[in-house]
Amino acid sequence: MTTMSEATYFILAALLDGPLHGYGIIQRAAEQSRQRVKIPVATLYRAVDRLQEAGLVVPDREEIVDGRARRYYRITDQGTEALAEEARRLSAAADLVIRRPGMGFA
């Protein structure tokens, strides 16, 4: 069984609303994780390499900004499926605690 790291989870989640470039992914992941996941650039591209190899993410398009190329990445159907699976797993794990009386969630 394959598991997903927290950074990978937020990278894939960042792409749910559409393709993003590297900096866009870093910003969105930080935002959506309430600044908990701050991915360094080299780490992001290592993760993107792995996700591309696994077929969860693909390059979308390139655009030139200030003379520099920016590459956008898109989540694949397989990536969306893997993310949903991980979300279900996390949700079930969270439910174990949240649904328990006396935990202060009622």
Binding site: H21, G22, Y23, I26, P40, V41, A42, T43, L44, Y45, R68, A69, R70, R71
Partner: peptide, 19 residues
Amino acid sequence: EIITTLRETGGGFREVVAL
């Protein structure tokens, strides 16, 4: 691509270590 993104993030010591 890495250099472009590093310019956008502003870089820093953490980025150097990760690189």
